[in-house]
Write a protein that binds this DNA or RNA. Structure first.
Lengths: 200, 200
DNA sequence: ACGATGTATACTGTTAACAATTATCCCCCC
DNA sequence: GGGGGGATAATTGTTAACAGTATACATCGT
């Protein structure tokens, strides 16, 4: 897949995001541009761009002339609230656009599901978390929800920092199969139910 | 205020945001780094940073190797949904943190209210829209909601593009006075009611 | 006349050097 | 011995030059 060469900024952003999710940078750590630039073998520019982007995604906090700090995950009550917002967005977008979806998009979702399966089989927590989100994103895009995706992604980012699905990877996968099948068949009620069961 | 010299990036970002809100750049327009850099008399770097930031705020859409495009405002149904999310966040944060707020923060809110008044008196639509949002943001920060502010801001950005309060500036101001007074006096019920009345 | 192909151009993506700011540490003074 | 002040170092902010990519246009072949 993705024969299209990614831009350096995207690669750097993705790698830092993975490092954040995998706990390589503990909350409260100050990230230095030079250090990361040298590690990736690139200049400070793209690293800087990545910092700005990840700040807006909610992973990092920017402080003028001082750099970025790794944010702390939300406390349980906030997490619950954020989860409810996330669920509302997914429900709204699916209800609105499920039956009007572009046929090609079903395949994109299926690809995302397959990638999730690979991550589950490999039992790599960070990859599972990322593929999980990507699957849901493909669903939203398929239902014409690109307008709300940035907001939704920000909410997910906050949740991912406390992603707790250690162990039962098989269940994680099957829950998404339970979403995909009614989605593919335009069964609105079952799709929503499966999403509600998955996000909690 | 703000005797602290802002960074160039912030100034550029703010100015472009104002231009977007005031309709200087119609939806669908492609923004060019060089053009804006020359207009502000700065290099492309900060303009680029501003583009990334404004993309995440929801104003612009990034296209790899092609630049940024001014996004279209959301359609009425989406706008209604976004409004409900925004209201939920404000309600949640205020309910959670109103009584624990830092005394100093009351003054910040009062300053924001005063600025809003100035904009209303001057009858400048764009400034009213910006001061309006800043007032609400100060409320959220006062109630310890900094964790949710980025998400909230993104939702507001989408709404601002269809900000429609042309004319009744006096009412806009008085609605915010109605929020401030119970906020200052720790009257949770009245504060929430006033917020609900204001956001619609 | 029409389409494919190659070239020119205009833009974004990246880099490295320079400027400005902030943090650190040592010295001096009390 | 403890606290302020100033040189020094480390880091971010900004700039301008260079590289890469996509679009537009002209040219060529049919």
């Amino acid at each position: 897949m993705s024969l299209i060469p990614q831009t350096v900024r995207e690669q750097v952003t993705n790698q830092i995001r993975i490092d954040l999710l995998s706990g390589r940078f503990p909350a409260g750590t100050m990230l230095r541009e030079i250090e990361l630039a040298e590690r990736f073998g690139v200049s400070r520019g793209p690293v800087r761009d990545a910092f700005i982007q990840l700040s807006h995604e909610g992973y990092l906090a920017y402080q003028a002339n001082r750099g970025v700090m790794v944010r702390h995950p939300p406390d349980p009550k906030d997490r619950e609230f954020i989860t409810s917002l996330r669920l509302q967005i997914e429900t709204y977008v699916i209800e609105r656009g499920l039956t009007d979806k572009d046929p090609d998009s079903v395949q994109s979702v299926e690809v995302a599901l397959e990638r999730l399966k690979e991550a589950c089989d490999a039992a790599e927590p960070t990859q599972v978390a990322i593929r999980d989100i990507e699957f849901h994103q493909q669903i939203l895009l398929a239902c014409g929800g690109d307008d709300l995706v940035p907001t939704w992604r920000q909410l997910c980012s906050r949740m991912l920092l406390t992603y707790t699905r250690l162990g039962d990877y098989n269940q994680a996968y099957s829950e998404h199969v339970a979403i995909f099948e009614p989605f593919r068949d335009n069964d609105l009620k079952k799709t929503i139910a499966a999403v509600r069961a998955n996000i909690k």
